[in-house]
Design a protein around this nucleic acid. Structure first.
Length: 559
RNA sequence: GUGUCAAUAGCUCAGCUGGAUAGAGCAUCGCCCUUCUAAGGCGAGGGCCGGGGGUUCGAAUCCCUCUUGACACACCA
């Protein structure tokens, strides 16, 4: 039920005021009604004072809609008051959480982009949850979503790891310590090569051997990739994120010549400073490099190859790339190149960028040194959740389960929480707090609903006629209105490509609920009212569980 | 230097497709568990919404300009 539309429907009878559509806004507080129409912009065309216009509108309106109780004119505003009881009754009997039918459109989302040569870190946390949440939002609206983890499995880092492995490591060590062993070789080698040209050359030679699929080196590379990928999959599995494709950069190595050839045939290429480029000066952009001066490939050509491949494979209607903001120009460039090459899908490509996390210096201690490594973040927050649960005053059936769900919620919350575009400070103490506006707060609110619903199970309410008048109470009606907003909020989130919209919506609802409990007892002696209140809680529960899921926060029955 | 994004309470952030008195959480101080989960609720203090212009009946919100910061600007991705 669209409540704003109800008010519009009443306004439609006004013919002399022009199009009032779009002027209607939500009232600032309940004393000013639920919606209001500011009349100031009408003053000029009507040559009348806003107050007079508001008076006239309020008087002339014939309210023939049972959802609207009254209309008032105050200081140039026409305030509309909903009939709370009727609206509550309508909403609770008719509103269902919307499920959209399949729309036969395919959206590819390229996110996470784990670099297998490095530990996953705080940046991946943001990327992965933002991407996953967007994926779920698109699915909610009926799209077929293809989740793509375009892994970094190409380039000199692997030469360095192999060099390190050969110098200091053993196969046995890799087998037992896995990713930790590989990272150790990498870090140690990077330090060693800093002022050693021989070692730098060694790393280059080894990467070349990987590219040439050298009989001795290539299997080692494959083994390294296997180990690193398993670890990435393990961590993403913990977070509840699963990909349809793990096709990485390396898999496009052979198609690069075709890409360059295609661009050449379209007459787009030129040579500059020895490198092969597409000149984009007409579009106020620096040139897009498709081949280095030494003839080697570069990321732009790999991205072009990948885009073409994905279109051929999935016939996508949209292809979204999620990366940190510093790659903005790169995406603008290769999108433009694909447009100039007349690729039919070029206008379906979209880069979604996000601001970076910065760390308060020295705050994050880690067994991996001074970076916010994902494994450590997961361990840390999980331990903390277990600790809090241990100290609860009542017993919880599956404490491990709950701790895990709380931990995941905290991680997702921190990834999605802040406006996508903003740089944000990741302070572990603040981020992993379980009090105030946090994911545990939201989950806690949900458990309180469940607790009440469980308690209400024994009540005989089947023959009871619900009394909706008790929902006139401020917070109760606020909840009714919020539930109606769900689809608008989800649409806004998907339009802005920003799940934080959903998160804020959930938070507001949770705050209202927590207030509601303290001012109004749900299970009292008036069964007619209890029935109405339980209907409200059930609806809120459904709305929250839908919205939570879309922002990767799991619901819990008790905590 | 050019471009992009940002600047709101002590801290971290909402609000930004213009509307009635600028919000929240944290921190500080003071209350509330014999009452459906205190991971909760209530209250207090705390603001030239970076500066300056402009548009408008009305600007934190739109435009211009300056300052500060982050990022990008050819062989890393």
């Amino acid at each position: 039920m669209n409540l704003k539309q109800e008010v519009y429907s009443v306004l439609e009878q006004l013919k002399d005021y022009g199009d009032l559509n779009g002027l209607l806004i939500e009232s600032i507080d309940e004393t000013k009604g639920d919606y209001c129409l500011p009349c100031f912009s009408l003053a000029k065309t009507l040559r009348k004072a806003p107050m007079i216009i508001a008076d006239e509108i309020a008087k002339s309106l014939n309210i023939d809609n049972s959802n609207i109780e009254k209309v008032e004119s105050v200081a140039g505003y026409v305030n509309f008051f909903l009939n709370k009881e009727n609206v509550s009754k309508n909403v609770l009997n008719n509103f269902v959480v919307p499920k959209h039918n399949s729309n036969d459109k395919v959206v590819c989302i390229d996110y996470c982009s784990v670099n297998l040569a490095k530990y996953m870190h705080i940046g991946h946390l943001k990327n992965s949850f933002l991407g996953e949440s967007l994926a779920r939002l698109f699915e909610h609206f009926g799209y077929k979503v293809v989740r793509i983890n375009y892994i970094g499995d190409y380039g000199t880092p692997y030469g360095k790891i192999i060099a390190g492995l050969q110098m200091w490591g053993t196969d046995e060590d890799v087998k037992t310590r896995g990713i930790d062993a590989l990272q150790e070789y990498y870090v140690k080698f990077c330090a060693a090569e800093a002022d050693d040209e021989n070692l730098q050359q060694l790393a280059r030679d080894l990467s070349k051997k990987i590219e040439d699929k050298d009989a001795e080196i290539y299997p080692i590379y494959q083994q390294i990739i296997e180990v690193a990928r398993k670890e990435a999959e393990r961590l993403l599995d913990i977070l509840g994120i699963h990909f349809d494709s793990w096709k990485g950069e390396a898999s496009y190595a052979e198609e690069l010549n075709d890409v360059v050839k295609m661009l050449d045939e379209k007459g787009l290429l030129s040579i500059s400073e020895g490198a092969t480029i597409v000149d984009l000066s007409k579009f106020d952009m620096p040139p897009c490099l498709v081949k280095r001066s030494d003839g080697a490939s570069i990321y732009a050509s790999r991205d072009i190859a990948a885009a073409i491949d994905r279109y051929n494979t999935y016939k996508f209607d949209k292809m979204l790339y999620l990366t940190a903001v510093e790659q903005k120009l790169h995406f603008a460039q290769f999108f433009k190149v694909l447009e100039l090459a007349d690729m039919p899908f070029s206008s379906s490509l979209e880069h979604i960028s996000y601001g970076r996390f910065s760390l308060p210096s020295g705050k994050i201690s880690s067994r991996h040194g001074k970076q916010a490594v994902l494994v450590d973040l997961i361990d840390y927050v999980l331990d903390k959740a277990k600790d809090v649960i241990k100290n609860r005053t009542f017993s919880i059936e599956k404490p491990e389960d709950v701790a895990m769900k709380v931990a995941k919620g905290v991680l997702s919350f921190n990834a999605i929480n802040i406006d996508r575009n903003k740089d944000a400070i990741f302070d572990i103490d603040r981020a992993f707090s379980f009090e105030g506006e946090t994911a545990p707060y939201m989950q806690y609110t949900y458990t309180r609903i469940m607790s009440i619903l469980r308690k209400a199970q024994g009540l005989e309410l089947d023959s009871v006629e619900p009394d909706y008048s008790c929902l006139n109470q401020t917070q109760a009606f606020e909840l009714i209105k919020s539930c109606c907003q769900l689809d608008n909020i989800l649409s806004l989130a998907i339009d802005k490509r920003d799940p934080s919209v959903v998160l804020k919506y959930c938070m507001e609802m949770c705050k209202t609920l927590n207030k509601y409990y303290t001012v109004c007892k749900i299970l009292d002696d008036n069964m007619a009212q209890v029935k109405a209140k339980l209907q409200l809680l059930t609806l809120v529960k459904d709305v929250l569980s839908t919205a939570f899921n879309l922002i990767c926060i799991e619901t819990v029955e008790e905590m």
